[in-house]
């Protein structure tokens, strides 16, 4: 039983990271029609800055804040410099551009900080033990931080004027403009929010994986699986999808095969999408031909 709980909680902690990252992806996608492949690489730059500060004796928490600031700033520069000039609705061009930005960011990180794996500090050390099993407090903190962040995002979008404006702009940028909302300003806020969540999830993930320029490729891949499972346009879907991926991944590794964990998880995702192509929480859209 203790092993089951251990594997479950560990899976929830991983899933919380995928969920946060997926939430960031969905917020940006809904606001600007951009599937931001560069998000993880930009967050990696933030991680390296946080680690550099930590190595100079700065508190880890301040390093996390710095990571968020750097990631958000870098993301906004990218948006203004290479995404915004593309114009609205250029889904595939934007996709290619973010892929290019991702490669450049990884190359920059490798050039500045090197490609040797580095250890990223835990936000909190220690472990909780019960009946022979041990769980790092970092994993419990990951779940708690992700839950608080998700709750705040939920509050922002459902209970505040800004959130309502962002939802309105996501539904129809033209209508939002007609009623006096600045779509560019709202897009910038969405990018900042999405990238901030990515940076936060990166800081929660890196202590387990270590830090290399490509460290966040694997969680980004799973975050994408999570948002497709949950529904590309649904913020709840991104969270639930990410959590599902994390838990299934660990359960499959423990009870089926440590080698076929991905196979099991993605088979499940494909099965769900066959039954509900819009994902678990996505809404079906129809386009007039």
């Amino acid at each position: 039983m203790s092993q089951f709980l251990l594997v479950l909680v560990s899976g929830v902690a991983s899933g919380a990271v995928y969920g946060l990252m997926g939430l960031g992806l969905v917020i940006i996608y809904r606001a600007t029609d951009v599937v931001n492949f560069a998000m993880a690489s930009l967050a990696t730059l933030g991680l390296y800055v946080a680690l550099s500060l930590h190595d100079r004796g700065v508190a880890t928490l301040l390093g996390v804040l710095a990571a968020v600031v750097i990631t958000v700033t870098a993301g906004l520069v990218v948006r203004e410099a290479v995404i915004r000039p593309l114009g609205q609705g250029q889904l595939f061009s934007a996709l290619v551009v973010t892929m290019g930005v991702s490669l450049i960011a990884e190359s920059v990180a490798g050039s500045i900080w090197g490609n040797q794996p580095k250890s990223f500090p835990n936000l909190i050390d220690g472990s909780v033990r019960w009946s022979g099993a041990a769980l790092p407090v970092q994993s419990l903190l990951t779940i708690a931080v992700a839950a608080v962040a998700m709750a705040l995002v939920g509050y922002l979008f459902t209970r505040t004027t800004l959130g309502s404006a962002m939802r309105a702009a996501a539904e129809s940028a033209d209508t939002a403009r007609v009623v006096g909302l600045s779509s560019q300003r709202l897009a910038r806020i969405s990018w900042a929010l999405g990238l901030g969540l990515a940076a936060l999830s990166a800081c929660l993930y890196a202590p387990r994986s270590g830090l290399v320029p490509t460290a966040l490729v694997a969680p980004l891949f799973r975050a994408f699986a999570g948002i497709f499972l949950g529904g590309l346009t649904s913020m709840y879907g991104a969270v639930v999808g990410g959590l599902t991926i994390g838990v299934l991944d660990n359960m499959a590794a423990n009870y089926i095969s440590a080698s076929f964990r991905d196979t099991f998880v993605f088979s499940f995702t494909v099965l769900v999408l066959l039954i509900r192509p819009q994902g678990m929480f996505g809404t079906r859209t129809f386009q007039r031909v």
């Binding site: 092993q3 251990l6 694997a218 660990n250 590794a253 423990n254 095969s257 440590a258 964990r261």
Partner: peptide, 17 residues
């Protein structure tokens, strides 16, 4: 032999095995 998915970062289930 115990095969593990390439680039696994969460080794909790592996250690259980």
């Amino acid at each position: 032999r115990l095969a593990v998915k390439y680039q696994t970062t969460d080794y909790t289930p592996v250690i259980s095995k």
